[in-house]
Deep mutational scan, measured.
Amino acid sequence: MQIFVKTATGKTITLEVEPSDTIENVKAKIQDKEGIPPDQQRLAFAGKQLEDGRTLSDYNIQKESTLHLALR
């Protein structure tokens, strides 16, 4: 499925993911596309910060959802 990640600079990244993917996997995909190390990424959805060990389906993130990326 496709999801979107909006960066602090307003850029939107499109990612191909599975509901079973962990947040860690998603951060690795962002690193592949943007070169941002996962340990510098903070992802949020619906106002909640997402934890590495959880999956997209844990957070009820569905196709075409938009996550927000902040850098630490």
Rank of each mutant, 00 (worst) to 15 (best):
50 L>F: 02
17 V>R: 00
55 T>L: 11
68 H>W: 09
42 R>S: 12
13 I>E: 01
4 F>P: 01
11 K>A: 15
60 N>F: 15
15 L>G: 00
35 G>Q: 08
44 A>K: 14
13 I>N: 02
8 A>F: 11
71 L>N: 15
1 M>G: 02
53 G>F: 12
33 K>M: 15
30 I>L: 08
56 L>M: 05
39 D>H: 10
57 S>C: 04
49 Q>I: 09
15 L>F: 05
23 I>L: 05
25 N>A: 11
65 S>V: 07
24 E>F: 15
17 V>K: 00
35 G>M: 05
25 N>K: 07
10 G>V: 04
27 K>P: 00
66 T>I: 06
37 P>A: 15
42 R>Y: 11
22 T>L: 09
41 Q>E: 01
37 P>H: 10
62 Q>H: 13
14 T>D: 12
42 R>A: 09
39 D>I: 15
42 R>V: 12
68 H>C: 05
63 K>V: 08
12 T>Y: 06
72 R>C: 05
67 L>T: 02
17 V>H: 03
4 F>H: 12
71 L>E: 09
26 V>P: 00
72 R>T: 14
70 A>S: 06
64 E>R: 13
24 E>M: 10
17 V>W: 03
71 L>R: 09
55 T>S: 08
64 E>W: 15
57 S>K: 13
38 P>D: 04
62 Q>C: 04
68 H>Q: 13
46 A>T: 06
54 R>M: 07
53 G>S: 15
56 L>C: 03
50 L>Y: 01
32 D>V: 13
69 L>G: 02
39 D>P: 12
48 K>Q: 06
35 G>Y: 04
23 I>M: 04
54 R>T: 09
58 D>Q: 10
59 Y>Q: 03
68 H>T: 11
45 F>I: 05
16 E>H: 15
55 T>N: 05
44 A>S: 15
32 D>E: 14
52 D>K: 04
59 Y>C: 03
27 K>G: 01
33 K>L: 15
32 D>L: 14
26 V>C: 03
46 A>H: 15
23 I>V: 09
64 E>D: 12
34 E>N: 11
11 K>M: 14
10 G>C: 05
6 K>H: 10
32 D>Q: 14
8 A>Y: 07
44 A>M: 13
17 V>F: 05
8 A>W: 07
31 Q>S: 11
49 Q>Y: 06
19 P>N: 06
55 T>R: 12
52 D>T: 09
28 A>W: 08
29 K>F: 11
58 D>S: 11
42 R>P: 02
30 I>W: 01
40 Q>D: 11
25 N>F: 14
65 S>Q: 11
62 Q>G: 09
24 E>H: 09
29 K>H: 07
26 V>L: 12
52 D>F: 04
18 E>N: 10
48 K>R: 08
26 V>E: 00
30 I>R: 00
39 D>W: 15
59 Y>A: 03
65 S>N: 09
3 I>D: 00
64 E>F: 07
59 Y>F: 04
7 T>V: 14
23 I>S: 02
33 K>T: 10
34 E>P: 01
9 T>D: 12
56 L>T: 02
69 L>F: 04
21 D>Y: 13
49 Q>N: 14
9 T>M: 12
60 N>D: 15
70 A>I: 09
26 V>F: 02
72 R>W: 15
41 Q>L: 04
28 A>D: 08
28 A>G: 10
15 L>Q: 01
2 Q>A: 14
48 K>W: 14
28 A>Q: 07
51 E>V: 15
57 S>M: 07
10 G>P: 06
28 A>L: 10
45 F>V: 04
68 H>V: 11
3 I>N: 00
26 V>W: 00
21 D>V: 05
69 L>W: 02
63 K>F: 11
9 T>A: 09
32 D>P: 03
11 K>R: 13
22 T>M: 15
67 L>N: 01
43 L>T: 01
6 K>G: 04
14 T>P: 12
13 I>T: 04
28 A>F: 13
20 S>I: 07
7 T>L: 14
35 G>C: 04
69 L>D: 01
38 P>N: 11
6 K>F: 10
39 D>K: 08
35 G>F: 08
48 K>Y: 14
36 I>Y: 12
52 D>I: 06
19 P>F: 08
34 E>G: 04
29 K>Y: 13
21 D>T: 12
19 P>E: 13
41 Q>F: 11
63 K>R: 12
1 M>W: 12
61 I>H: 00
57 S>N: 07
43 L>W: 02
